[in-house]
Design a protein around this nucleic acid. Structure first.
Lengths: 109, 109
DNA sequence: ACCATTATTAACATAAGTGTTAATTAACGA
DNA sequence: TCGTTAATTAACACTTATGTTAATAATGGT
């Protein structure tokens, strides 16, 4: 099992977050397609993909000379689960904030 | 506004993720209390708290010589919002996985 | 004023992350 | 088998992150 920390670390880089969002939007893509939209060399992207793979965020499928990458839904769900585990905390907090802001608004603050 | 990338980066360290979870569970705590449970020096923790603060994950309240830290619910909600923005993606993916696993089970795979 | 307490900033050492170019590996078609 | 295409690994440079101890700042009690 990959930890939540690894997952967050994997997503803490702009290139990698882009890759994830692109793969979610467009589906499975070869490494080459992921390099094209960036200013980055292929080796650099290759290593970012390795980080994502080790963190369990993407999986690789070999097809001829191409490596096709896709997002593993479990990884996304793990983050969703974590936020939901703490939902009562932040929902309560947001409600308090909303109430506070509404009060300030009413007072002409 | 702090970006999602900063948020993920802030949570990608074990010490910092612990701090966040502890603050959510126990509520506002002084820096000193957060150091006690760790093997870490106070200055190191102080800097972790600074990272969390700059990422908008916690806020600091001054009370005498103490600095009381608490989690900002907005930050947590930002992550929840992001996962929910992509919910259709990973829910569909999980459903596909479940179906696949059920099939394998039925086939005695 | 002085001292103790709480916490941060400064200065430094070391480890980890990220990019580059060059070299290597693997699949495919002529 | 030879050359082309797709991608990764190797070797290197440089920046960023993280920990330590020592020094500084600020509050509160006597």
């Amino acid at each position: 099992m990959t930890t939540l920390i690894e997952t967050f670390a994997a997503l803490s880089d702009p290139t990698r977050l882009d890759v994830i969002e692109r793969l979610m939007a467009e589906g499975e893509l070869p490494a080459g397609a992921l390099v094209e939209n960036t200013q980055m060399s292929a080796p650099a992207m290759s290593r970012h993909l390795k980080v994502l793979r080790h963190a369990g965020l993407v999986e690789q499928r070999v097809a001829g000379t191409s490596r096709l990458y896709s997002v593993r839904p479990e990884a996304l769900k793990a983050i969703a689960d974590w936020t939901m585990d703490h939902r009562t905390f932040w929902e309560a907090g947001m409600a308090r904030l909303d109430a506070h802001l509404a009060l300030e608004e009413g007072e002409g603050e």
